[in-house]
Amino acid sequence: MIIVLSDILTVLGLAILTIGVYGFVRMPDVYTQLHAASKAGFLGIVALLASTALHGDGAIITRAVLITVLLALTTPVAAHAIGRAAHRREEPMHISEAVDETVDDR
């Protein structure tokens, strides 16, 4: 039973990771890639970690929880740093109908 659950979580995590990578390859500019890559990736990793922690001993569970909390705190900050750097260096948005409410302060 636990093995089946673990398998399901592993496949789910791999699917989410794959969607993240595919989105990263397909999106045209860095801002849209940010959404697909770093955030969709987070949930995939959490699913993989949960599958690992299901049958592990205490050491594995503590580490899995620790990595989850750490990623939950660091992925948004890393994404924000990348987005801010791109925005300040004025990297272009490649979708023609994109909206930008900050365009008037340049």
Binding site: G13, V21, A37, S38, L48, G56, L71
Partner: peptide, 19 residues
């Protein structure tokens, strides 16, 4: 961003291996 994603996937790989 690609480098960041690369290490994220590596962490996933390590989680799989630990399991």
């Amino acid at each position: 961003l690609a480098l960041d994603l690369l290490t994220l996937i590596l962490v996933g790989l390590l989680a799989l291996a630990a399991g």
